[in-house]
Design a protein around this nucleic acid. Structure first.
Length: 191
DNA sequence: CTATTGATTGAT
DNA sequence: TCAATCAATAGG
């Protein structure tokens, strides 16, 4: 039985706000091999006016999903070996999204360990390309809607969390923008 | 700290 | 066609 899946309307807001709202929500992946769930503990916002964003120079074949409707998946391949997962935010044509940087594993942990070839819980989802691997997300999920289908997000449990923010990681431009958000004190944040 | 690895992009 | 860049990770 499925808990409350977030509807498309939830994602229709500006990236920094959505990045905050997604903290404490649960990313869910259903596959024939089993279900995996993780609490979202770290995010980063990217917008079109932002020099560090893939959408900064306008829409390209690679970034098309960022300019599409909110609540869909933008997945990019980088460094010749890693995929990362974003949730598209804002309106159609806006070119923005929220990078999911880290999860706290909740369910399907054995499956995550198999996919990651790791046995330490803290090494399963504490980085953007790591959680993609642990959740079994692939290029085939590019552009897919998260408000339907087998990859989706459940609403926050409502537990009180303290949110911190700071500069984003791994970028070489707009390093002053404090658009990385994380749950204070959570042990699964990437660093 | 370094090596890895190849798609994407914009300039020749 | 070519070269630079890259929202990262694993292993010393």
């Amino acid at each position: 039985m499925e808990n409350s899946r977030l509807p498309q309307t939830f994602f229709r807001r500006e990236a920094p706000e959505l990045a905050r709202e997604l903290l404490g929500c649960i990313l869910v992946r259903q596959t024939p091999a089993g279900i995996t769930k993780g609490l979202i503990v770290e995010t980063e916002a990217y917008s079109q006016e932002d020099a560090a964003s893939h959408s900064y120079k306008g829409e390209t074949a690679r970034t098309a999903a960022m300019f599409g409707p909110a609540g869909h998946a933008y997945i990019y391949f980088t460094y010749g070996m890693h995929y990362c997962f974003n949730v598209v935010s804002g309106g159609i044509g806006h070119g923005q999204g929220v990078l999911i940087r880290a999860l706290e594993p909740l369910e399907g942990i054995e499956l995550m360990k198999q996919r990651r070839h790791k046995h330490d819980n803290h090494e399963l989802c504490n980085g953007p390309a790591k959680l993609v691997q642990a959740m079994g997300i692939t290029r085939a999920d590019y552009g897919k809607a998260l408000y339907k289908g087998n990859l989706y997000i459940e609403k926050s449990s409502g537990n009180a969390i303290e949110i911190k923010s700071g500069p984003r990681i791994g970028i070489t431009k707009a390093m002053d923008a404090p658009w990385r958000f994380w749950i204070d004190g959570n042990q699964h944040v990437s660093r």
